[in-house]
Design a binder for these strands. Structure first.
Length: 732
DNA sequence: AGCACGCCGACT
DNA sequence: GTCGGCGTGCTC
């Protein structure tokens, strides 16, 4: 008699549940990776068979209801990946599987689905005429798709269109019936554009990786924007994707997938699928199955796509590997970049981590000879390096966020009919709202944070918990009417900018004005058509987009990254600065970058603009070493939150004692804290944390494993939510 | 996480 | 008398 060991989606670490097989099930169906419907306590749920054994310790086993798969849904290699990740990130296996499979799988969705062909939809000649006319009100959806398809020379697949228009299928059918669009079933070879010639540095990367294609070969590809990283990816894929082999390409943001997909489609005659968490469930399921079964040759996706099974993997690419978006910051806290590297090792294939501003972690790994390092110098004939200039804000007479020097430069560049990009990382109108007569400040009732004044909606908003309240007319504390916004956000900067440059066409780009992919695309079109003179925005501007006519970049305030409690703040500030600057001065127009700061003498800032990112990274790494921080030391953060601060702290104190008594505790493992979190109260809950720090990474897995089991047994305290963050990005 | 069981306050 | 609050404990 065989016994099924099943992972069930419950928050119990390192615990599987044994069941008798469902009646009349052929032995062949009882395999790891098969989903089973099982009774669980008073309810019923779907779990995954992890192992099949001959007997169980547990006396009275229940019988599973049924197997949901005839062949394992989860292939062996993916199950191994899940087991590793569950141990490494200390996250319950069942929940991990539930969180990373396409959403419907754990609801018991059938996989007996006919896969839709990966067709590209294009306008027919009639459709092209029609797209310039307007349709009646009732046919808005038709018109919208026509307009979108008009802009692409190569067509879009349903998944891409779904980003702009939810559930496009009926609309596509309608358009097809009218003969305005037609599917382009497979890319005809004549449509494919030829590869670009490679320079010697690019050629070296392609040749070396091709020569090492049969083994784990991790590489850091360090190249500024415009140095041709994407061309390297494309040519590698051309060489490596033969005989049904596949590739996984990760990008940090959904906004960047269409761009990447468009370039890939123009060049590669392969079946390509997109995978990210905002796709409709059904589409996601299809893409996942197509990748697992080898029908999809290239999978392009965001963080969550790293869990997509591939039948015959040949290459993994992680583009913009430094981007913090690769780290999931809630529930299952994993780094898609690190998981991708583990995956490449498991599959014995090369992996490329590409970036113009590599993370300190990856640079450290190249120093340790763990990664191979490739540098792409700027392409000859391409833009010159932008020149950097620091503006000392201490010497500014008038307290305007735009120094006279910056204003003069903006004026000059506008006169020359060139575009200006201004970067400021703060949304809203003003970060503080204050009463001048009694000094009352509008605070969030649920968080330790000020409410941000948003002029557009005439309201006060908390950026940490989304609390919203109407703007008060009288001070709640003294009834005076002397209420004023203090400080600046992008909204206010836009207002002042418009005042300074009344004729300039300004586009504000932040998550308030540009919340969706579609808005962003429209805006990009306007920017490319030079219908915009000044782009003002938050870090959305720094990501991946090309603005060929921008010749002046202004950093309104570079100081936020210099003195933060967050140990990765300087690294992030440097990356942001270089990335934003990288948007300027392409297409042979030299770029100028003006950086406003109250600390022009700051050594890291000086180093960054004088000697570049590489030199900055060197000195930042030394600082990390001296501070005993990553990548030299490993960190794990035990976070706890409760209605009362003391409850959270008490829990952590107990956790600390348990840790110190654990048999795998060791003097090389340091426990720091517990301390209240930097933002102590958030969403009406008090947060505290205990930091685990060690230089000896091999000690951690066993220690964490035992500690977690003890914590789990010992959790008599109610009302406490806690979680472990392995390799935390920040200590906030 | 769910869900049941259990033990105390204000309701028909 | 009982409906329901959420503290505690279990799930093969």
């Amino acid at each position: 008699m065989s016994i099924l060991q099943v992972a069930v989606p419950v928050p119990l670490f390192d615990r599987l549940f044994d069941y008798k097989p469902p009646p009349h099930t052929p032995i062949i169906q009882l395999q790891p990776g098969v989903r089973v419907r099982v009774p669980f306590g008073a309810r019923e749920c779907v779990g995954v068979i992890i192992a099949v054994k001959t007997h169980s310790e547990y006396p009275d086993l229940k019988t599973a209801y049924e197997c949901l798969d005839a062949i394992p849904l989860i292939p062996k290699y993916l199950l191994d990946m899940y087991l590793w990740a569950s141990q490494y990130y200390c996250y319950p296996l069942g929940q991990l599987i539930a969180a990373t499979l396409p959403p419907r799988m754990m609801a018991g969705a059938s996989t007996q689905i006919e896969l839709p062909p990966d067709v590209l939809w294009c306008l027919t000649s009639e459709g092209r005429q029609q797209a310039n006319l307007s349709l009646p009100e009732t046919q808005q959806r038709l018109e919208m798709l026509l307009k979108i398809l008009q802009k692409t020379p190569i067509g879009h697949c349903e998944a891409t269109l779904a980003l702009a228009l939810p559930n496009p299928r009926p609309t596509l059918r309608a358009l097809q019936r009218r003969g305005w669009i037609a599917p382009l079933p497979t890319q005809s070879p004549t449509m494919i554009q030829p590869p670009l010639p490679l320079n010697s540095a690019q050629q070296l990367v392609v040749t070396t990786i091709c020569n090492n294609a049969q083994q784990f070969y991790p590489c850091l590809l360090d190249g500024v924007t415009g140095s041709g990283k994407t061309e390297v990816y494309l040519q590698l894929l051309q060489y490596l994707l033969r005989d049904g082999r596949q590739a996984l390409v990760l990008v940090p943001e959904i906004n960047l997938t269409p761009q990447m997909v468009a370039r890939f489609r123009q060049r590669l005659p392969f079946a390509l699928v997109i995978l990210h968490s905002q796709l409709p469930d059904q589409t996601r399921l299809h893409a996942w199955l197509a990748a697992r079964d080898g029908q999809a040759t290239v999978v392009i996706g965001t963080r969550s796509a790293v869990w997509t099974p591939l039948a015959k993997p040949a290459l993994i690419v992680v583009d913009e590997e430094h981007d913090p978006a690769y780290k999931q910051q809630d529930s299952f806290r994993y780094s898609a970049r690190d998981v991708a590297v583990w995956r490449a090792r498991q599959a014995n294939i090369p992996i490329i981590l590409g970036s113009a501003t590599p993370s300190l972690d990856s640079l450290y790994n190249t120093k340790q000879q763990r990664y191979h390092y490739f540098h792409l110098p700027e392409r000859a004939g391409n833009a010159l390096h932008p020149s950097y200039r620091l503006i000392d804000m201490r010497t500014q007479a008038r307290r305007s966020p735009f120094s006279p020097e910056l204003q003069k430069a903006i004026h000059h560049h506008l006169q020359e009919k060139q575009q200006v990009l201004l970067f400021y990382n703060r949304r809203g109108y003003a970060p503080t709202f204050m009463c001048y007569s009694c000094a009352w400040i509008a605070d969030c009732p649920r968080c330790d944070a000020h409410l941000v004044y948003h002029d557009l909606m005439d309201e006060l908003r908390c950026h940490h918990c989304n609390y919203v309240q109407n703007l008060p007319k009288y001070c709640p504390s003294c009834q005076s009417q002397a209420l004023h916004p203090i400080g600046h956000g992008t909204e206010r900067l836009e207002e002042q900018l418009q005042h300074l440059f009344p004729n300039a066409r300004i586009a504000r780009i932040d998550s308030d004005t540009t919340p969706s992919f579609h808005n962003m695309n429209e805006l990009l079109t306007q920017i490319h058509a030079q219908e915009i003179d000044i782009l003002l925005g938050t870090q959305m501007l720094a990501k991946g987009h090309h603005f060929p006519y921008v010749t002046l970049v202004g950093i309104i305030n570079a100081d936020s990254g210099l003195f933060s409690v967050d140990f990765r703040a300087t690294e992030r500030m440097a990356q942001l600065l270089i990335q934003v600057s990288g948007r300027a001065g392409r297409e042979a127009l030299p770029g100028l970058v003006l950086i406003q700061t109250y600390h022009p003498e700051h050594p890291l800032l000086q180093c960054l603009i004088r000697e570049g990112y590489g030199a900055f990274a060197e000195s930042a790494l030394i600082e990390r070493f001296n501070a005993e921080l990553p990548p030299y030391f490993r960190l794990v953060l035990l976070r706890a939150e409760a209605k009362l601060l003391d409850k959270a702290l008490d829990f952590l104190i107990r956790a600390k004692i348990i840790a110190e008594q654990s048999p795998n505790f060791n003097a090389d493992i340091r426990l720091l804290g517990p301390v209240p979190a930097p933002m102590m109260k958030r969403q009406n809950r008090y947060r505290a944390q205990l930091l685990i720090q060690t230089q000896n990474r091999r000690l951690l897995p066993r220690f964490l494993h035992d500690w977690l089991l003890l914590l789990q047994q010992n959790q008599k305290m109610s009302g406490i939510r806690w979680s472990l963050d392995v390799d935390p990005l920040d200590l906030m």
